[in-house]
């Protein structure tokens, strides 16, 4: 068995494990922002690892898979940032146990209305 196939399969399995952890995170976390933390980070790495692993198994596709992975790496943080900002401005609350919220203070200072 070729060594690149072995490494590629291990990477794919590891990436799928991170995808699973990300999904588990969005189920277990108590509020939208914590869910987004788990969802964004774990699934980004899971996606990268699975795509690179598949590229190792089939080296001819490596370039295209790397392009897809690079695209995901660049756009995923942007979309989660935009979603978090929109959700906060639409009035999605932080969870009960949150220790601090300096964003609301700043928005109130600027005189912007935030529904809660």
């Amino acid at each position: 068995m070729a060594v690149n196939v072995v490494i590629g399969s291990v990477l794919v399995a590891l990436g799928a494990a991170f995808l699973f952890l990300g999904a588990l995170g969005i189920v277990r976390m108590p509020d939208l922002y914590n869910r987004m933390q788990a969802g964004t980070k774990a699934t980004t790495l899971g996606n990268l690892l699975t795509l690179v692993g598949l590229g190792l198994i089939e080296p001819a596709w490596m370039l295209k898979l790397l392009l897809i992975a690079l695209f995901v790496l660049m756009t995923n943080p942007i979309s989660s940032h935009a979603l978090a900002r929109g959700a906060y401005r639409a009035g999605v609350p932080l969870t009960e146990g949150s220790v601090r919220d300096e964003y609301r203070e700043a928005l109130e200072e600027h005189g912007e209305e935030v529904p809660s």
């Binding site: 794919v12 990300g22 999904a23 969005i26 699934t43 899971g46 996606n47 795509l51 995901v72 979603l83």
Partner: peptide, 10 residues
Amino acid sequence: LDVLTLITMP
């Protein structure tokens, strides 16, 4: 939906 998309792509 975002997470589902990222799962479906691989």
